[in-house]
């Protein structure tokens, strides 16, 4: 490369020369192959969207899009498919999971980053990874056989002592308190904890250590340092991680199916028996579905797909922005 004319050499001194690469034949093949692989990912998501919409169309048009999204009946013989009640129940389960899971997850993230002895930290992060990898089926079995019993005791207590809060009220005095939104939310909470913990831990670990030491050096307590340095710095990343957990909770299938009784009506009394989620609907009804009901299930899957896609993309955008800021 010829030397670039430098009228003011001192200014250009630090600017690296642009690299001119000549691509060989092998390079072009290599780039083509990896671009093809990358395009496969695009293709998969594109196919998902197109095919689900296409196959969902007969069911949605038979019911009508408004009735589909707001109705709470599932009568394949009358061609009436409504997932409105299930959408409400899905969101209630996910919100319950967040209320239980977020404090634990953030506490765990802070514990690993700021409080635990340095020697314990690899084991703790390993434990979080392990928790994330445990199959949801096993969580569901454990929730069903080990957690239902003690949690229905908690539910009883909540119903008798905190019934000033509307969602803890019971419609009838002797309604069953097992197989409810509350218990499903609890099981899902344990499943989303590792997701929230690992993402928010990553973000909080990027706080400039100098600022933390500064806060401590000014006489702040450790909690003062966390409150005034770590949390403000990681705020958007934490919000993003919570949204990621929310997206995971919305799509959780097997653990929910095992611990609830599926109902199609919206059930805002979270302690009472009967709840539901879209994915639970698909997994439960799929076995004996025929004809148009299959299209109805695909339509429900499409609704779930779009809902989680939106939540996840917002969450990822927030997390990535906060990582760039760090």
């Amino acid at each position: 490369m010829p030397d670039a004319p430098a009228p003011d050499g001192a200014v250009l001194e630090d600017v690296p020369r642009p690299i001119v690469q000549s691509r060989t034949f092998g390079d072009r093949v290599f780039r083509g192959i990896s671009a093809g692989a990358a395009a496969t990912c695009l293709l998969i998501m594109f196919t998902t969207g197109v095919f689900l919409t296409w196959k969902a169309f007969p069911a949605i048009s038979a019911t009508g899009p408004i009735d589909f999204l707001t109705g709470d009946t599932w009568q394949p013989d009358d061609e009436a498919f409504g997932v409105g009640g299930l959408l409400v129940n899905t969101i209630m389960i996910a919100l319950t999971a967040l209320v239980v899971g977020v404090p634990v997850a953030l506490g765990l993230a802070l514990f690993i980053n700021e409080y635990s002895p340095a020697k314990m930290r690899p084991f703790l992060t390993g434990g979080v990874d392990l928790l994330a990898a445990i199959p949801s089926l096993i969580f569901g079995m454990w929730g069903l056989f080990a957690l239902s019993e003690p949690l229905s005791g908690v539910a009883e207590w909540l119903a008798s002592h905190l019934n000033a809060i509307p969602i803890f009220r019971l419609t009838e005095p002797d309604v069953a308190l097992t197989r409810s939104t509350f218990i499903a939310g609890f099981v899902v909470a344990i499943m989303i904890t590792p997701v929230i913990t690992s993402v928010s831990r990553d973000v909080m670990a990027q706080v400039p250590r100098v600022q933390c030491e500064g806060a401590l050096g000014l006489g702040g307590s450790r909690w003062g340092m966390i409150r005034d340095v770590v949390l403000p710095f990681g705020k958007s990343g934490i919000v993003g991680s919570i949204l990621l957990g929310f997206g995971r909770a919305l799509g959780e299938t097997i653990a929910v199916v095992l611990v609830i009784d599926l109902v199609f009506q919206p059930n805002l009394n979270i302690l009472e028996q009967g709840s539901g989620s879209i994915s639970a609907l698909i997994a439960t009804k799929f076995g004996e579905a025929q004809g148009l009901e299959i299209n109805g299930l695909i339509a429900a899957g499409l609704a779930l797909f779009i809902m989680t896609l939106i939540v996840n993309l917002i969450a990822r955008a927030i997390v990535n922005r906060s990582k760039l800021a760090g």
Binding site: C41, I44, M45, T48, L52, L244, G247, R248, L250, G251, E252, T253, S279, I282, A283, G301, L304, F305, T308, L309, V311, N312, L313, A315, R316
Partner: peptide, 9 residues
Amino acid sequence: AMSGLPSIV
């Protein structure tokens, strides 16, 4: 987006 795809989908 794929990493958040519910497994049932």
